[in-house]
Design a protein around this nucleic acid. Structure first.
Lengths: 213, 213
DNA sequence: TCGACAAGTGAAAATGTGTTCACCGTCTGT
DNA sequence: ACAGACGGTGAACACATTTTCACTTGTCGA
């Protein structure tokens, strides 16, 4: 039913897309007019209305620079497809709820390295010791951790746990209604703990290890 | 000289960052006020001025929504070009020019992990053996390699080399006009070689290691 | 040839938004 | 006791921006 998009409308659409790419923010009507040699903001207004009717853009009525590109693939301002995981900063084991608060930074991590875990449930911490050095996890390595409730962990899983303010990679072992966190060498003691322990909070499974040489 | 950032200013800064992430566009002064329960746009104005003085944000004077986050790493609206590096497929050491041809796939790798090397010069290979297992590089690990000409390598550098059709991580050691590639354990022999050797092509420095658990 | 539509001009109206002014209260260090 | 930084209120102002109105031009198909 709807008429096809016109040449002029295409120009406006592409101008908006390019402007967003260049400036990181949508243009105003007048900026569009300047860019396309249109003196009247009304002409721009009508062109935008046409683009909106045809579903190419979305507008937030009244707001300054309230133009969005409808197609997420074309939108330069859309969130990148590569998940950005928060790097947790020093968090104490007795306040695990602060894990995602005030991250120290973030890393883009290819979805391949998440082994199917939802990016929203994953975060990154830096290993605080060499407890699993013989398993290839070194102090300072970035650990990509999929947050996992205790009951969903299996014996032998490599997990990351907050012990005090340290983040440790350990092997998880159930022991009645408690559990143990084993290190690999003899230099580190195994850590006995249980659910709710303020001294030890198991964040989840380690799904990947990233190391800068 | 400059005073440290205050708690309130931090709240404003984080509100702006989060707003940009959520809306894809910077907030107006009044939107910030609404979000932080500040009735007067002037209070917001002064907070922004403080943040600008302290270099945390940049403002385009007069423009609607003219707030930018100064640190590109924190700016949700910045062009987040996450480099996509090719994963090389089986390539023989006598045809190194085919390295970037027909990659087996690609991984998005955060620039942080490239340690300053240009993404264009980096590629990814899978380690074919455990020659540097005691150095924390395991068979099957993804090696992020910065292509480096032989003459720019230093003794002790961890490098990736094509030996036959295998990609090996080894320690580089110069030896007159030749060089040696050392493994770490006793299970693997050191590999003597020289420039132009069809049996052995040194791709470059290993700058990061990525491991799926 | 008429009507529907795209595109435009120019101006005016209505909001949105940044900026400034005067003034207040609470801290903190001197 | 006081100055200075910080955070705020409320109002006013100026300019930016969106929206509406009236009117024009050209194209195209019925």
């Amino acid at each position: 039913m709807r008429r096809p998009i016109t040449e002029r409308q295409t120009q406006v659409y592409e101008f908006i897309r390019d402007y967003m790419r260049a400036h990181g923010t949508p243009p105003t009507l007048r900026e569009i007019g300047d860019g396309l040699s249109i003196r009247s903001s009304n002409a721009v207004f009508k062109l935008l209305k046409a683009l909106e009717t045809k579903g190419l853009i979305v507008r937030e009525s009244g707001a300054a620079r309230g133009i969005r590109i409808a197609d997420p693939d074309e939108d330069p301002l859309a969130e990148t497809q590569v998940p950005s995981l928060p790097i947790i900063s020093r968090v104490s084991s007795d306040e695990p709820e602060r894990l995602r608060l005030r991250p120290r930074g973030a890393l883009f991590v290819d979805e391949t390295l998440l082994s199917g875990y939802e990016p929203e449930t994953c975060l990154i911490g830096k290993a605080s010791d060499d407890g699993l050095a013989s398993e290839g996890i070194w102090r300072g390595d970035f650990l990509v951790v999929a947050q996992t409730p205790l009951r969903r962990l299996d014996d032998g899983d490599i997990v990351a746990a907050l012990v005090g303010e340290a983040l440790l990679a350990r092997q998880f072992m159930r022991r009645m209604d408690r559990f143990m966190l084993h290190a690999a060498g003899r230099s580190y003691d195994s850590i006995p703990s249980s659910d709710g322990d303020p001294e030890c909070y198991v964040v989840g499974r380690v799904v990947s290890v990233l190391r800068k040489m």
